[in-house]
């Protein structure tokens, strides 16, 4: 294990700790989505997945 891996791990852990309070706030204060709201999120994400599969075919 070299020093770069240790520094990367420490930086990621520090990032998680810093993000935790705002994550808690967002979880508590986010409005609930309806099933149609979630569908409007799932459709473009599915399109992104298909697009990435296409890029993998092209490479």
């Amino acid at each position: 294990m070299d020093w770069m891996q240790i520094v990367s791990a420490l930086a990621l852990v520090a990032f998680i700790v810093i993000l935790l309070p705002s994550a808690r706030y967002m979880i508590k204060n986010s409005p609930k989505g309806t099933s149609s709201d979630w569908m409007s999120f799932v459709i473009p994400i599915f399109a992104v997945i298909v697009f990435i599969a296409l890029l993998i075919k092209l490479v």
Binding site: S22, A23, M26, I27, S30, P31, G33, D37, F41
Partner: peptide, 8 residues
């Protein structure tokens, strides 16, 4: 805005 908590 409903995605906030989920994404975080």
């Amino acid at each position: 805005s409903f995605l906030g908590g989920f994404l975080m």
